[in-house]
Design a protein around this nucleic acid. Structure first.
Lengths: 151, 151
DNA sequence: AGACATCGTTAGCATAGCTAACGATCCTGC
DNA sequence: GCAGGATCGTTAGCTATGCTAACGATGTCT
């Protein structure tokens, strides 16, 4: 009856991960408020800052969102002076999105604030728990990737 | 320099957990689409189904949302015939919310679907990885709880 | 050259989040 | 017992995010 047990475990795990994801985001959102950016904008900005200039379509796929949605998110970031739209020389259909210096600064400031919030919680973990949680985060990323590939 | 290293670890972990939470919810949302319910509605319904009759204010606090927002979520669920509003005898200001039989059924069906989606991914994990992920999920819950208590 | 494909945008819709303001009800102090 | 303040849920009105459909501009292929 091993597969039955695994199925029950999967159910429980799904519920826990789902709930944890919801509540984690709600808490981080309060911190992210200090940047003046919503979660989707902050996430997109992060991709642009670390992923170099990127086309709008690539950004939409990276964020698992449709192009019209990304158009508006980028427009919002652009109005805030955090990213710039640039045309592509070779393929004039493309819009390349690049972070401005201000965009980089804002993202870094947000990172510090999140760290400060999490620091208090993480400090209480012993080394073993910290390592376990890192392992769990990696497994979660892999799980999400495998789900994405199957879709 | 241990605290410096821990701080870096906390930063990386915060980024990873933030990103993982966003992407996990995006994937689960596609599955939840089969219920015809959005994530907030599904989450609220879950509280009502398992938490018995509950006032609107309690529900709003449980979901970390303001009362006006919960009013509309409940209205949506009510129009779908998934919950009922009932007045309270003792305190006529209160609105008690109770799940209908249909609401219970829909929630259960959604649970099955989520499990089916995750099953494929979880099946590929060996027992060690599964145990590690469960441990990680538990640590994450504890982390969130400790953050909430400090706020 | 013409047909088709791809990219980003616009338009229009639904949902979810917020604050402010309000009516109804409850509780308290006098 | 009643006048004033507190609490509960709702309504109104704003912003942001998500979607599909449709379109113009550009690229590609035959």
């Amino acid at each position: 009856m091993k597969s039955r047990k695994r199925e029950r475990d999967a159910l429980a795990l799904a519920e826990q991960l789902h709930s944890a994801a919801i509540h984690l985001l709600r808490h981080l959102r309060t911190v992210d408020d200090a940047t003046g950016l919503s979660a989707p904008r902050l996430s997109a900005l992060s991709v642009v800052v670390f992923g170099g200039p990127v086309t709008l379509g690539e950004l939409a796929r990276a964020e698992q969102v449709r192009p019209p949605t990304m158009t508006r998110i980028v427009t919002g970031l652009e109005k805030g002076g955090l990213v710039r739209r640039e045309g592509d020389e070779r393929d004039k259909r493309l819009t390349r999105i690049r972070a401005t210096t201000k965009g980089q600064k804002v993202l870094m400031a947000g990172r510090s604030r999140r760290v400060e919030l999490l620091a208090g919680a993480v400090e209480k973990l012993d080394s073993t728990a910290l390592a376990d949680l890192e392992r769990g985060a990696q497994l979660l990323r892999e799980l999400i990737d495998s789900m994405r590939r199957e879709k």
